[in-house]
């Protein structure tokens, strides 16, 4: 485990899911997807193994996910079958407020 860095990109080891860290707490966090620890997106790991049934709702590209305390926020940049969790607790999908188009 290590502190997450803003802007870091992580990938799932059990599905095609990938995320980018938008906001991170100072404390150490283990990010998981589909119940398995995520790895740096630069690592050459091909997804294998099973998505844990309790972590199988999936991640949707373009959606943002936050923890209960709202100190951790990630953006899904590639969709996958696994659900995101921080230190074992599932993240929540963040509702985005619809804004008027300005540019």
């Amino acid at each position: 485990m290590a502190a997450l860095k803003m802007g870091a990109r992580l990938k799932s080891t059990v599905c095609s899911g990938e995320i980018m860290v938008v906001m991170a707490p100072d404390t150490e966090v283990e990010m998981s997807c589909g119940g398995a620890a995520m790895v740096d997106a630069g690592e050459s790991v091909t997804p294998s193994g099973e998505v844990h049934p309790d972590h199988a709702v999936g991640v949707v590209m373009g959606k943002r996910y936050i923890d209960e305390a709202e100190t951790l926020e990630v953006l899904c940049v590639k969709a996958g079958d696994g659900s995101l969790a921080a230190n074992g607790t599932l993240l929540l999908q963040k509702d985005t407020k619809k804004l008027p188009k300005t540019d």
């Binding site: 938008v22 590209m61 373009g62 953006l75 619809k98 804004l99």
Partner: peptide, 16 residues
Amino acid sequence: RHKHLVSYILGSVEFA
């Protein structure tokens, strides 16, 4: 910086 522009887009635009 990338963080400024990406923050602006994530904060104001809905993906797709």
